[in-house]
């Protein structure tokens, strides 16, 4: 077993990897103050949380194709132990991102929430962010073992294929968050796309011909 594989099998290590990006804003805001971040720290936090949610969502979706493409690779096996943890963390960051958006728009006054939601529903860019969050929420509450048993494997699997829809919506939402197309969307989501294409090709090749099935 390689060192990397051992490390990636450890839940503690994965927890640290998930929590660290959430703590990152402490650096430019408090430890090493950066004027362009201090201009509006909450905006930096808002974007950073959304970025992390996208990154974790794209990451967790690479686990299955990696295992299909490289079934004997220990690292791919190790990663697949953490699918639920990483998936739920993507939801957690997305939820924090949305909560930050509400505070960013309305401060701590709860009375502003209805108008913030009305604005969000009326604008495709924001509505698609909300839809992504709704899908991730659905996936999170159905990730409990009891829910899997209750829904049955097949239905559960179909529901969880919505994760791919969420990834597509998240990529759009992230791209539309800037005035010009941000390249980070490509380096987050293109590797996932390539892995999925490779996986589909491999599974098609290995599948029995439709005439026999």
């Amino acid at each position: 077993m390689s060192f990397l594989e051992k490390l990636l099998r450890s839940k503690v290590f994965v927890w640290i990897l998930i929590l660290l990006p959430g703590l990152w804003p402490v650096w430019p805001i408090f430890l090493h103050p950066n004027s362009s971040v201090l201009a509006d720290p909450l905006k930096f936090i808002l974007h950073h949380l959304g970025f992390t949610a996208c990154l974790l969502l794209a990451t967790v979706l690479t686990f299955t194709p990696l295992r299909v493409l490289f079934p004997k690779w220990g690292v791919a096996q190790a990663l697949n132990r953490h699918r639920r943890l990483v998936g739920v963390s993507a939801f957690a960051y997305a939820a924090l991102h949305f909560a930050t958006h509400v505070i960013y728009e309305g401060g701590t006054d709860v009375g502003t929430i209805p108008s913030i939601l009305r604005t969000a529903v009326g604008k495709p860019f924001q509505l698609i962010g909300l839809l992504t969050l709704a899908i991730l929420f659905l996936l999170t509450i159905t990730s409990l073992t009891a829910a899997i048993r209750w829904l049955g494997g097949k239905l559960w699997k179909n529901i969880h294929r919505l994760a791919y829809v969420a990834a597509g919506l998240a990529a759009y939402h992230q791209a539309a968050a800037r005035k010009i197309f941000p390249l980070q969307v490509l380096w987050i989501f293109v590797p996932l796309l390539l892995l999925e294409v490779a996986r589909i090709i491999k599974q098609r090749r290995n599948a029995p011909s439709p005439a026999r099935s």
Binding site: I29, L38, A39, D40, P41, L42, K43, I103, Y104, E105, G106, G107, T108, T119, K123, P124, F125, Q126, A176
Partner: peptide, 23 residues
């Protein structure tokens, strides 16, 4: 008149103060 992606009804104040800032 809103921007298609966000509202123009209010604005963040740069250097608004604190972690939460101001609008």
């Amino acid at each position: 008149v809103d921007h298609p992606r966000w509202s123009q009804a209010s604005e963040r104040i740069i250097g608004g103060g604190g972690l939460l800032g101001a609008r």
